[in-house]
Amino acid sequence: MKFSDFRGKVLILDFWATWCIPCRVEIPHFVELQKQYGDEGLRVIGVSLDEQGPDVVKNFVKRLDVNYPIVIGNEKVAEAYGGIDAIPTTFVIDRQGRFVSRQMGYNDKETFEKEIQSLL
């Protein structure tokens, strides 16, 4: 999966992990947003920073009915995004591939919804 595959879409890029409670609370919101705005061009991508192997993540994603792609990240990926030292850290990227915002910590659904509405 390459970043350029999503050119022309509005992206939410969410760095998270299964052991992170605030991340877990956000995920159902992303599932809803993907459902509501997918047709208009929203793509949510989750980057898990779990280090306990893919099974932990797979099980978790299945239980939460995640409807968007999840990739397993590593330090290199985190570096590429300016270094992630706390999660959740979430980027919003517009259709031209420009970074619109970077947020650390939990945010509610409305905050993301407003932001992507203005970009879609």
């Binding site: 992990a17 052991w19 992170c20 409670i21 605030p22 991340c23 920073l49 992630i84 030292d85 706390a86 999660i87 959740p88 650390m104 910590g105 939990y106």
Partner: peptide, 8 residues
């Protein structure tokens, strides 16, 4: 974890 944020 603290204040809705988890450190790596």
């Amino acid at each position: 974890c603290e204040n809705f944020v988890c450190q790596l």
